[in-house]
Simulated assay, not measured.
Amino acid sequence: MAISRFADLLEEAKQQPEPQRLLFVFTRAELPDNPTVEQRQRFEQGEGGVLTPALCVDKSPEELSDMEALVAESRNTGIEWDIVFVAALSGSGQQPPSGEEAERHLQRMVESLKMGNIGSFLALDRQGEVVSFQ
């Protein structure tokens, strides 16, 4: 199944034979350090910039209903974000991944994102639509 929006992700995660944890790293677009004039202009037009991790959370698919609920929950943190990166973590047998295991994987995601390695994660905007980067 091709995942093109958040609802597809939830459906796919719920159909997996092993219990899943969805790992979310919420990022915000910022200007890079020492931006050029061109970078600043593009950023002011809503393009470019760097995505900086701002918030992490892990959830089971059953804890999520839709993107609107996830956005509302994130709003309660007071932390602004633009793009959320998502990965799935499978349990073993009937056991879901532990909280410690999810935390380790979230930290690896954050480090990967800081280094610009985004290819192995699903990126979604605030409307729950898949975002692709050029």
Rank of each mutant, 00 (worst) to 15 (best):
residue 1 M to F: 13
residue 2 A to P: 15
residue 3 I to P: 09
residue 4 S to W: 03
residue 8 D to G: 02
residue 8 D to K: 08
residue 8 D to A: 05
residue 8 D to Q: 08
residue 10 L to E: 12
residue 15 Q to I: 01
residue 16 Q to Y: 13
residue 17 P to K: 12
residue 17 P to T: 01
residue 17 P to M: 09
residue 17 P to I: 03
residue 20 Q to Y: 08
residue 20 Q to W: 15
residue 21 R to P: 03
residue 21 R to I: 04
residue 22 L to G: 06
residue 26 F to H: 08
residue 27 T to E: 01
residue 27 T to I: 04
residue 28 R to V: 03
residue 28 R to A: 08
residue 29 A to S: 12
residue 29 A to E: 06
residue 33 D to N: 13
residue 33 D to E: 13
residue 33 D to F: 12
residue 33 D to Q: 10
residue 35 P to G: 02
residue 36 T to L: 07
residue 38 E to H: 04
residue 40 R to E: 10
residue 40 R to D: 01
residue 41 Q to L: 13
residue 42 R to C: 01
residue 42 R to K: 14
residue 42 R to Q: 11
residue 43 F to A: 09
residue 45 Q to H: 08
residue 45 Q to A: 10
residue 46 G to W: 07
residue 46 G to N: 11
residue 47 E to I: 10
residue 50 V to W: 11
residue 51 L to F: 12
residue 52 T to C: 00
residue 53 P to I: 00
residue 53 P to V: 00
residue 53 P to C: 03
residue 55 L to W: 13
residue 57 V to R: 14
residue 58 D to L: 02
residue 58 D to M: 05
residue 59 K to Q: 10
residue 60 S to V: 01
residue 61 P to R: 01
residue 63 E to I: 12
residue 63 E to A: 13
residue 64 L to M: 09
residue 65 S to I: 13
residue 67 M to D: 04
residue 67 M to V: 09
residue 68 E to W: 07
residue 70 L to R: 06
residue 70 L to Q: 11
residue 70 L to F: 07
residue 71 V to H: 08
residue 73 E to Y: 04
residue 73 E to H: 09
residue 75 R to W: 06
residue 76 N to R: 15
residue 76 N to H: 13
residue 77 T to W: 12
residue 77 T to K: 04
residue 77 T to A: 02
residue 77 T to H: 10
residue 77 T to S: 13
residue 78 G to L: 14
residue 78 G to T: 05
residue 80 E to G: 05
residue 82 D to S: 05
residue 83 I to S: 00
residue 85 F to N: 01
residue 85 F to P: 02
residue 85 F to Q: 00
residue 86 V to T: 06
residue 87 A to Q: 07
residue 87 A to S: 07
residue 90 S to W: 15
residue 90 S to L: 12
residue 90 S to K: 14
residue 90 S to C: 02
residue 91 G to L: 06
residue 91 G to Q: 05
residue 92 S to N: 08
residue 93 G to K: 05
residue 93 G to W: 03
residue 94 Q to G: 01
residue 94 Q to V: 12
residue 94 Q to A: 12
residue 95 Q to R: 15
residue 100 E to G: 07
residue 100 E to P: 00
residue 102 A to I: 04
residue 103 E to L: 12
residue 104 R to F: 14
residue 105 H to F: 11
residue 105 H to L: 09
residue 106 L to V: 09
residue 106 L to C: 05
residue 106 L to F: 11
residue 108 R to Y: 07
residue 109 M to Q: 11
residue 110 V to M: 10
residue 110 V to N: 06
residue 110 V to L: 04
residue 111 E to K: 15
residue 112 S to P: 02
residue 114 K to P: 03
residue 115 M to L: 15
residue 115 M to H: 10
residue 116 G to W: 13
residue 117 N to S: 09
residue 120 S to D: 12
residue 122 L to T: 07
residue 122 L to I: 14
residue 123 A to C: 08
residue 123 A to P: 08
residue 124 L to G: 02
residue 125 D to H: 05
residue 126 R to Y: 11
residue 126 R to A: 02
residue 126 R to Q: 11
residue 128 G to I: 05
residue 128 G to Q: 06
residue 129 E to Q: 14
residue 129 E to R: 15
residue 129 E to P: 00
residue 130 V to Q: 13
residue 130 V to E: 08
residue 131 V to I: 15
residue 131 V to C: 09
residue 132 S to Y: 03
residue 132 S to R: 15
residue 133 F to V: 10
